[in-house]
Write a protein that binds this DNA or RNA. Sequence first.
DNA 1: GCAAATTTGTTCGTATGTATT
DNA 2: CAATACATACGAACAAATTTG
Lengths: 276, 276
Amino acid sequence: MPEPLYRRIADELERQIESGALAPGAKLLSELELRRRYRASRNTVRDAVRWLTIRGRVETRPGQGTFVIQPPEPFITTLSADPDTGLGGGEGSAFRAEVRLRGRQPYTPEPRVEVSRATGIVAAELRIPDGTAVVVRQQRRFIDGAPSSIQTSYYPMALVKSGATRLLEAGTIEPGAVSYLRAAIGLEQIRYRDTITVRTPDAAETQFFGLPEDGRVSVFETFRIAFDTNDEPFRLTVSVFAADRNQLAVFVGQVPPRARRVESLRPALTGETGDG
Amino acid sequence: MPEPLYRRIADELERQIESGALAPGAKLLSELELRRRYRASRNTVRDAVRWLTIRGRVETRPGQGTFVIQPPEPFITTLSADPDTGLGGGEGSAFRAEVRLRGRQPYTPEPRVEVSRATGIVAAELRIPDGTAVVVRQQRRFIDGAPSSIQTSYYPMALVKSGATRLLEAGTIEPGAVSYLRAAIGLEQIRYRDTITVRTPDAAETQFFGLPEDGRVSVFETFRIAFDTNDEPFRLTVSVFAADRNQLAVFVGQVPPRARRVESLRPALTGETGDG
DNA sequence: GCAAATTTGTTCGTATGTATT
DNA sequence: CAATACATACGAACAAATTTG
């Protein structure tokens, strides 16, 4: 019946965090002090701290202590297209514009460009045979110096042969690849489809975003297929966002206003909660 | 320099999972067997299993063993509006239609309806004074018997006074509350804004969705504000989705096709990964 | 239905290593 | 270099959940 000791300690610490007695950034008592405070063994207080760590409430730093997590100021990426530019999901210059509008500092180093062969999902979504050459353009994006997202786009090599040669150049394409394709070869993007998933980051993403290695912070992945006027897919863009510092917005209908940052509401489940 | 022992054990087990040697649903060796197999103490083996647990690769069941996670078949909810019905994000009948279209079985018990007072975010987003009465309608949704999402809508009581009395009734409003408001009091929803976040589930959500208690599986939260022709917000809908069994889709542009389920691509970071 | 065996969960103690101040 | 703090690793015992005989 009674909760295990480590949970009682964790719950008590969590209450102190919720109440503000332990503010974001504050240092918890050390393991030895917690051990005395709760008359538990060091392993048990470590279990309590680990529980809070998995829940994303605290982080431990070797040699320093355990600290209450300071949630990063979230950045909102608008997936639906801007009515003026047609850009959405932080494509091209839209990213820097959206970031500056919030009074924050964007940084987008030169994209990495390479040619590889489409396999699996890439080939299937672009409706090209497995092994067909594709241009891969990868853009890293930073906000206020912190890594924010990684965008990887796949274009069939056929587009380059049709005259869109700048796709192969290493520099940024301003204001965006979509505008360039329209200007260069008359390719019109008439619609796109985004699919959003949440998953555990892989090792490279963990490293890039500076996430904890155990994978307790997840990433968003948006999977965008863009179609031309012939209803053919001509671009696949995969964007990966660290979930602890990003939100997504979608506007449907007339005259989109600006997205507002949203705190979580956590609506209470009404009535009895255990009938499922 | 060498990786700690528990990580080496975890990595080896993870490789076996990746390679398929340990298929989804398979039972791992017991802790005692792993202890012999890797010549490590039971605690060290448990650390390895915990690592995989946090990463979402395995789950432990007391008295039974440790099993490779079987990822649930994801369900895709389309946030953008259906061009025919104007419904989006699984509103009203759109949910059951979208589920059936996938050959799966929807279940939506009667919504819970109650009147409470708007505070904080709810009041601010609906632009009504703190403490104003609101109708709260909460809908639980199941797919193939498994809890899938919880939708909570807040309507200003003023709508009821204007004649939309069915908002207070406990039954489902078919085909949806939006159509009803248009028919009953001429209220037209001309646009909405969704904001999507990922967070740790609270206790009630953990219980409803049957998620692990340590909060390692996160939830999506979509925050929808709907506006009428006067550009006034008249509805706030918060939907919470278990992130391990849901994906979201957004269509932008002409003639949305059907969303396709997407496996994660995990695009490799090109070039050196450590310049951040 | 019950008892035994198996398996994970909790808690303690102890020792040593590594990172930071 | 010393002190402090967290990380890793071992051993041991008992509890709780589940399956098996």
